[in-house]
Design a protein around this nucleic acid. Structure first.
Length: 423
DNA sequence: TCTGGGGTCCTAGGACCC
DNA sequence: TCTGGGGTCCTAGGACCC
């Protein structure tokens, strides 16, 4: 029988912070999104104070102060590194691992030959905890959707000790009757509303839904979920991530932007970063979309603009992408608005070495390779942002805030934790 | 009165995920 | 004053083709 395990880190970003700062243990902790905008990770102590996922920080600033909540900016460098270490541990417990997100992985535990899978999962948990310091939960099920559901139960029923096994059908049905349908993986608010209309409220209700009705109501995606809930796998383990189709860099400004030079600078900075990401993945794009818009939270006139430009050949050359992005911004710029966000996206990505040459007007690839190679080498040696195109600006008053970021303990020599011994 | 059939490709928008 | 970022997949509709 097929058995999937879903392992994820509890309050993952907060747990990462606690690994390196034990003073945070036992205290409510939250980690904020980019720009210190809203809470994206909360420990149970913080949830108990009523802090929700996505809660805007300026609305809970006083609450956090009054209750001694530790508030941190997100430190993706640190979280990414700990995530990689956790996945190395998973590899010791299954030869087949799919890294699903920064804090979740699916493991294929099929064919473990009569081993006690729950015991195996408990051992995995204990090992991850000991070797990385991160607490996890594990859900076991015959399909991915059921493994996710088991993981949800493992999180919400403390008596299970962090491991929930839903491979046994009778036990599964009984448990599913107590789980709200909104907790099923792939069922979002719009689907919940539709399902509620036909009296479908629990995971068990959804598992019993007629396939044709599920398809009509929720498209093939919903029909697949019904099969998966019934224990019939439709989703496979994806050990090798398929080539990504798009790549984007989008940011809220730390303050509103209302003049063209600043917008040009910000978009240039995003484009520079996009080019770095493309090169890191060995990808190139010949379609670039640039957008910026005002905030619906603001009073005053609203406006959003977007322009897609086609390049003569697919590339990840910073300068080529910069000139395309600049032209796009100038073409769609409109005065008189206070813009809150801008972004650049490449779509329809291809592998850089497979980019076709155009008949006319081709880029000088050799020259580009030498220049960009030198750029990347400097930034690899001295840190990202050491050498930037002038168009991307130096002072960057619009740039994202990270006012409460913890040190990048595991990836920056100059930010290593310091231990002092008295003697 | 009556106006074919069957494709492909692209785009925009919706929904969902972490 | 202050409300995240980056993905995936599906569908519908229009343009275009023979």
């Amino acid at each position: 029988m097929t058995v999937f395990a879903l392992v994820d880190g509890n309050s993952f970003y907060c747990s990462c912070e606690r690994v390196f700062d034990p003073r945070l243990v036992g205290r409510p902790v939250i980690v904020l999104s980019n720009n210190d905008g809203c809470a994206v990770a909360r420990t149970p102590e913080a949830k108990a104070l009523g802090i929700r996922m996505g809660h805007p920080f300026f609305l809970i600033r006083d609450l956090c102060r009054d209750h001694g909540v530790a508030v941190l900016s997100s430190n993706y460098t640190l979280y990414g590194d700990l995530s990689a270490r956790m996945n190395e541990v998973y590899g010791l417990f299954s030869p087949h691992v799919e890294v699903y997100s920064i804090d979740e992985s699916f493991l294929d535990l099929s064919g473990m030959g009569g081993r006690d899978l729950a015991a195996h999962a408990r051992e995995l948990r204990a090992t991850v905890r000991q070797w990385t310091g991160i607490p996890t939960c594990v859900g076991l099920g015959p399909t991915k959707v059921l493994a996710k559901l088991a993981n949800w139960l493992a999180k919400h029923a403390p008596e299970l000790g962090g491991v929930c096994d839903l491979t046994d059908p009778p036990r599964r049905l009984e448990a599913m009757a107590r789980i709200p349908v909104a907790e099923v993986w792939g069922v979002g608010p719009a689907s919940v509303a539709k399902l509620d209309g036909i009296g479908c409220r629990t995971a068990a209700d959804l598992a019993g839904l007629d396939h044709a009705l599920a398809r009509r109501l929720l498209t093939v995606v919903g029909e697949r979920i019904v099969y998966e809930l019934q224990g019939l796998p439709c989703l496979e383990l994806e050990e090798v991530a398929p080539q990504r189709k798009g790549c984007a860099v989008t940011r809220m400004f730390s303050r509103r932007v209302d003049d063209l030079p600043t917008m040009l600078e910000a978009v240039a900075a995003h484009t520079t970063r996009l080019a770095e990401k493309l090169r890191h993945h060995g990808l190139a794009t010949d379609v670039l979309t640039v957008f910026f818009h005002t905030s619906t939270h603001d009073q005053g006139p609203q406006h959003g603009a977007q322009r897609t430009v086609h390049l003569i050949e697919a590339t990840n050359d910073t300068l080529a992408l910069l000139s395309a992005a600049r032209a796009a911004v100038e073409a769609i710029w409109r005065e008189g608005f206070r813009y809150s966000k801008a972004g650049v996206m490449g779509v329809g990505l291809i592998r850089a070495e497979e980019a076709q040459r155009p008949l006319f007007g081709a880029l000088d690839r050799e020259r580009s390779a030498r220049l960009i190679g030198a750029l990347d080498a400097v930034n690899a040696r001295w840190g990202r942002g050491t050498l930037v195109p002038a168009a991307a600006g130096l002072k960057r008053p619009w740039a994202t805030r990270f006012e409460r970021r913890s040190p990048r303990y595991t990836t920056r020599l100059d930010e290593l934790p310091v231990a002092r011994a008295r003697g």
